[in-house]
Write a protein that binds this DNA or RNA. Structure first.
Length: 649
RNA sequence: GCCGAAGUAGCUCAGCUGGUAGAGCAGCUGAUUUGUAAUCAGCUGGUCGGGGGUUCGAGUCCCUUCUUCGGCUCCA
């Protein structure tokens, strides 16, 4: 007999060799019908796998993240089976589950898949799913596995096998498809009731651009058709929040083929929104002891040779600007740090001067690869809310912590809650990619890890994600469609001070090298605004929103009174406009609601007589009669309480 | 840069197997002077992304190029 401990703490006795499915059945038939897999101790197992030792058991259903993962992993196999039967001779690489769905990388052998084929694949998947084929697990020796896949002529699976250890190799089969797979899988294909192929894309084999490009087929499945429909609706809703769509609709920014790809043009409303964000940041930075600096958009090649950026990125950047002077070359600045180093060097520094905190909203230009450009999130010209801190080694951690505070201040103010703090460290196996000494790297990495821990950040450590000059702490946020973007970034740099021979005089009257911290809480205004738009679906907080109100005269007869109201409100620092089109009030309301205006002030005969306005809030309808003064107070209070709420959250 | 898809009026889109472009919204003009999510009528507006080719004839077929979209790679 073995003892099985369930999540509620209860312990039950079973025969050794009982499977989780049998245990589920012993609890209730309904539960057993929904069991997709089981967590046995800390491993996820097939529900049919016999348990032979005392164990903790958690039955996994569709309601568990791991249950979903298992279903999607099994669905990848099902899709592979469907693909193999539709396109004989294709070969498979890997097919993992994702946060939403799964994919499989396949070598189509020259055949091409298009969206027109999706339905056919979905049909086939459902047809196979209906057969209730069992996912059969089989442990085999490495030798057997090699001979099986050699016979099949499957070089991809053979490549996978090379890295697997004997005694640890399993095959999974369902229907006519057998795959090298660690598992686990759902009991049988019958659990999959709805399938959708989402899209196809090229993906380099093993993620290396020197390798062959495979076809990656993305799909998603559900145990109920209704859930698929709900998911597709959700996707549609998410697309409505896409910043590229809203940016156009709300007249925030645009692109022009003539100006060039990846070079955003900010329209008046977007430009003013930017200014508000800049003011917000400047206020916070001034409080935190930053001083402003301004540097030019170009610099001589020598600056970047000195910084090391030329060597690293010179060929892949915008190419040099030549001058009439023979041999003279300037580069568009791809980052502000070298300029700031030169500012630091402009006068001798004492240990008493440190830390120095130079801040600049610096516009930089980077020649991003064509296929990488993406709305405002990846562009070729953008403005960083950049600052560089120069401090003594003993000040690094304190400064780092203060920067984390600043980033969190920004995120809180804008209600960004769903972020992860990513600590990006060096890839120890590829040290040549980075500049700087081992010792300095270790110091910097240590400083980041400690500060993040001290601030209680929920962190993820990524090896190999560091910048070439130093490790970093990045704040990652997801867009409407779940893509991850880096916003705020803090980077410790022991390298540039070395290269620029930055110094300060210590209390010992000796020269010392300062440590540099790069940081940008927004990251870039472009990307930040993109994510902000998707985050709030275009309904910006009141302090940021382009127009806070529109005045809607009932008829042209009240345009003059509307003008008077507008003048009063403008004088009291609110921003808005008069919708004096020759339209009925219902039409004006509808248009302003669609335009996401927070407030509508309706003025007609009654309002003019009372010297008031009828106030209408977005999505809420009529909220009463206000004088202009009361309305201003109302708005100011809303902004304040909103801020207090968020910043104290 | 790589794989795949798409580009028709300011915006959203229609245009079957080739027969020389169409709607709604927006805009303009006029009528209406309006009370809480679309007043009516008229008009303007497109070298169908660019270039080349096939054809008597190309938005439609072919080639090429640019841009955009979904991914991959990259992201100082």
């Amino acid at each position: 007999m073995i003892k099985i401990t369930l999540p509620d703490g209860s312990v039950r006795d079973y025969e050794s060799g009982t499977s989780s499915m049998q245990i589920a059945l012993s609890i209730s038939e309904g539960l057993a019908r929904n069991v997709l897999a089981a967590k046995v101790n800390d491993e996820v197992w097939d529900a049919s796998r016999p348990i032979t030792n005392d164990s903790r058991l958690q039955l996994l259903t569709w309601n568990d993240a791991l249950g979903k993962k298992t279903l999607w992993h099994s669905s990848a196999h099902l899709m592979a089976e469907a693909l193999e039967s539709l396109y004989p001779g294709i070969k498979f690489w890997v097919g993992p589950p994702l946060e939403n769905g799964f994919y499989y990388d396949v070598d189509l052998n020259g055949q091409v898949l298009t969206p027109a084929d999706f339905e056919k694949i979905e049909q086939k998947m459902l047809e196979l799913a209906k057969q209730n084929n069992v996912y059969v697990r089989k442990e085999i020796s490495k030798k057997e596995a090699i001979s099986y896949f050699s016979e099949k002529g499957d070089e991809y699976k053979l490549d996978l096998l090379e890295r697997l250890e004997d005694g640890n190799i399993t095959l999974y089969s369902q229907g006519n498809f057998t795959d090298l797979c660690r598992g686990p899988h759902i009991p049988n294909t019958g659990f999959i009731k709805a399938a959708k192929i989402l899209n196809i894309a090229g993906a380099y084999w093993k993620g290396d651009e020197k390798n062959k490009m495979l076809t990656r087929v993305y799909g998603i499945t559900f145990p109920k058709d209704k859930e698929l429909k709900e998911y597709l609706t959700l996707l549609e809703e998410a697309k409505k929040r896409d910043h590229r769509k809203l940016g156009k609709e709300l007249e925030l920014f645009t692109f022009s083929e003539k100006v060039g790809m990846g070079l955003p043009l900010w329209l008046p409303k977007g430009a003013m929104l930017r200014e508000r964000l800049i003011n917000f940041m400047q206020k916070a930075q001034t409080k935190a002891g930053y001083v402003p600096v301004v540097t030019p958009h170009i610099a001589q090649k020598e600056l970047y040779v000195c910084s090391g950026h030329y060597e690293k990125y010179g060929k892949d950047s915008f190419q040099p600007i030549k001058t009439p002077q023979e041999g003279e070359e300037f580069f568009l600045k791809p980052m502000n740090c070298p300029h700031h180093c030169e500012i630091y060097k402009s006068s001798p520094k004492s240990y008493k001067d440190l830390p120095m905190r130079y801040a600049e909203f610096g516009t930089v230009y980077r020649y991003e690869q064509h296929g990488e450009l993406h709305g405002l999130t990846r562009v070729r010209g953008f403005t960083q809310d950049d600052a560089h801190l120069f401090c003594r080694p003993d000040q690094v951690k304190e400064e780092f912590c203060k920067v984390i505070d600043l980033v969190l201040h920004v995120f809180n103010a804008l209600d960004f809650k769903d972020y992860t703090a990513q600590i990006s460290l060096r890839d120890p196996e590829n040290a040549s990619k980075y500049i700087g000494s081992d010792e300095n790297w270790k110091l910097a990495e240590q400083a980041i890890i400690e500060s993040a821990a001290e601030k209680g950040l929920r962190t993820v450590v990524e090896l190999g994600e560091a910048a070439f000059y130093g490790p970093k702490l990045d704040f990652m946020v997801k867009d409407a469609l779940g893509r991850k973007w880096q916003l705020g970034t803090i980077q410790v740099d022991y390298n540039l001070p070395e290269r620029f021979e930055l110094e300060y005089t210590g209390s010992d009257n000796q020269k010392h090298r300062p440590v540099m911290i790069h940081r940008a809480p927004f990251g870039s205004l472009e990307r930040f605004i993109a994510v902000l738009i998707e985050h709030c679906g275009g309904n910006f907080p009141l302090w940021l929103t382009p127009d806070q109100f529109a005045i809607l005269p009932i008829s042209e007869r009240f345009n003059e009174y509307a003008k008077k109201v507008l003048d009063e409100l403008t004088a009291m620092d609110l921003r808005g406009f008069i919708d004096d089109r020759n339209e009925k009030i219902g039409k004006k309301i509808r248009d302003q609601e669609i335009g996401k205006l927070p407030f509508m002030l309706i003025v007609g005969e009654k309002e003019e007589a009372e010297q008031k306005v009828s106030l209408r809030a977005r999505g809420k309808g009529d909220i009463g009669s206000f004088s202009t003064g009361d309305f201003v107070k109302y708005v100011q209070q809303m902004i304040e309480s909103d801020f207090n709420q968020k910043l104290n959250a």
